[in-house]
Design a protein around this nucleic acid. Structure first.
Length: 465
RNA sequence: GGUCCCAUCGUCUAGUGGCCUAGGAUAUCGGCCUCUCACGCCGAAGACACGGGUUCGAGUCCCGUUGGGACUACCA
């Protein structure tokens, strides 16, 4: 059995988006599962729209997601000689021909056909003129007009196309650069690609590509077309659906393992399992379990997964990931140990790193500012006495740990004949400025004796003033 | 318009003719836990688009209808 070789061929005309990332992921998983080779190929034949920035952005995103490749990146614009060679073979065998129709004339034809309700396809007027090379001439593929072409799709099953529906597509532009449909075939042939796994928006292209394989008399790879990812309006996911770039999610505080897990479950399943480690994914992934229908991108489920992975990670590993977000909020640097301890209290309470960085605020500042409503409700003069007792009790504590803190609190509370809640909320406001926070004793433990006493005294001052 | 694809809770999905009184997840709602908020746990509500066949039996197979989507470039 021949080794499996797949490829991911983004065109560098923009960032790596969610749909492309899932296609890359499926290719990667399929390849890793079978122990094959995964090739990265940059399809930059659209020289007008391709940019260096986009190439870098795509590579960065692949790296962030942990989708490593075994070969490449190859660039199509560096392979022009190869395309030329295959083009000559096609020309020699009469499978291709020169055409001198101008884009303007073609466009006019299209419009006319559309206006009359006819199918807008190239009419083949240069087909048999026996034209040779010349300025402003393109090379077209001589498409068989009879018969049917069958695409045996691994996901969708057999799909039949009537060749009469196809027209003579352009293989090489007038500037000598091949078009996508030609370059992709030649690359897949010369790179020995065994499985072409791509979005099903490519299905209509496939019969034309198959015809080129046949004209060249080379064997076909296997094709697998995965359904689209749609936005919430059920249209193909695009910029207008909000964030669609992979790296935008990094900036929004998402974890790569969450994106991977979310994306893989869009179209693929393994029974009822929702959470997968990368190893499990490689172990279980197969094309047979890829569904046929498109799926809607659901930010709510994605955020749930992200929160899950945020909780699953060690607090220590989160420190370097969170630091840029903290720095963006202009907090001074704190020791990693302190940050990890603080992060641990926030892990079950936040869904992403942005939320976490915001929630970190009271751990990062010198003095907290009170939420006005919270202060008004809880920092009332009747709390002065309990707070003073609390301060005295905490001051005398040798070991400032959660257990001792808890008994110190309970001591004060019962002495005053109060419920813990009566003191806890005011203390929370005093320490964090807010009525919502991690557990009181966790906070105190992280903040440390000095900061806690300082904030409690400030609160007493506030209540007295 | 033409060609092609698709169709199970709002969303992601399990289901490959009897195990389905249709399962899980998320979101929603209720309860428990509790120093607040989360987490966690328990529970509720919620789907086989419709119509014909085939079959002893259909969510599962076939046909049609409807609905949605993709493509229709010297973009990829």
């Amino acid at each position: 059995m021949q080794p499996i070789i797949t490829r991911f061929p983004p065109s560098p005309t923009g960032f790596l988006h969610i749909g492309g990332a899932r296609t890359a992921l499926f290719n990667w998983l399929f390849t890793r599962h079978h122990g094959g080779r995964f090739i990265l190929r940059i399809e930059d034949t659209d020289v007008v729209r391709s940019t260096e920035d986009a190439i870098k952005a795509i590579l960065d995103a692949m790296e962030w997601l942990g989708l490593d490749w075994d070969e490449g990146p190859y660039f199509q614009t560096q392979r022009l000689a190869i395309y030329r060679e295959y083009l000559n073979r096609l020309l020699e065998r009469g499978h291709a021909y020169y055409c001198e129709c101008t884009p303007a004339a073609l466009e006019e034809h299209r419009q006319a056909a559309l206006a009359q309700g006819r199918k807008p396809k190239y009419d083949g007027r240069c087909r048999d003129r026996g034209l040779g090379p010349g300025p402003n001439r393109v090379i077209r593929f001589r498409c068989p007009q009879l018969g049917t072409t069958v695409l045996n799709d691994l996901i969708k099953g057999p799909i039949l196309f009537d060749n009469a529906e196809l027209d003579d597509l352009v293989l090489e532009r007038s500037d000598g650069i091949p078009t996508y449909n030609f370059a992709v075939v030649i690359d897949d042939i010369t790179m020995n690609i065994t499985h072409v796994i791509r979005g099903d928006d490519h299905v209509p292209n496939t019969p034309r590509q198959i015809l080129i394989y046949q004209a060249l008399d080379v064997p076909l790879p296997s094709f697998a077309h995965v359904p689209m990812i749609l936005g919430q309006d059920r249209a193909k996911l695009s910029k207008r659906h909000g964030a669609t770039s992979v790296m935008a999610y990094k900036e929004m505080g998402y974890l790569p393992e969450a994106l991977i897990n979310y994306l893989v479950r869009l179209g693929w399943s393994h029974g009822d399992q929702e959470i997968f480690s990368r190893e499990e994914l490689i172990q279980h992934f197969s094309l047979e379990n890829v569904g046929k229908s498109p799926s809607v991108f659901d930010p709510e489920k994605f955020i749930w997964l992200n929160a899950h992975y945020l909780r699953a990670r060690s607090a220590e590993s989160l420190v370097p990931l969170l630091e840029p977000f903290l720095a963006a909020r202009e907090h001074p640097k704190k020791p990693a140990e302190y940050l990890a301890k603080a992060i641990r209290t926030l892990q079950p309470r936040t869904h992403d790193l942005v939320e976490m960085a915001d929630a970190m605020n009271f751990y990062m500042v010198q003095d907290v500012s009170y939420d006005p409503a919270a202060a008004k409700k809880f920092l009332t003069p009747n709390m002065i006495e309990p707070f003073k007792k609390l301060i005295a009790s905490l001051e005398s504590l040798e070991l400032f740990n959660e257990a001792n803190l808890e008994s110190a609190f309970h001591g004060v509370v019962s002495e005053m004949g109060l419920k813990l809640g009566k003191v806890a909320q005011p203390a929370r406001v005093a320490l964090t400025g807010s009525t919502v926070s991690p557990g009181l004793f966790e906070i105190i433990d992280v903040l440390g004796k000095e900061a806690v006493l300082r904030r409690l005294r400030k609160a007493v001052e506030y209540m007295s003033g």
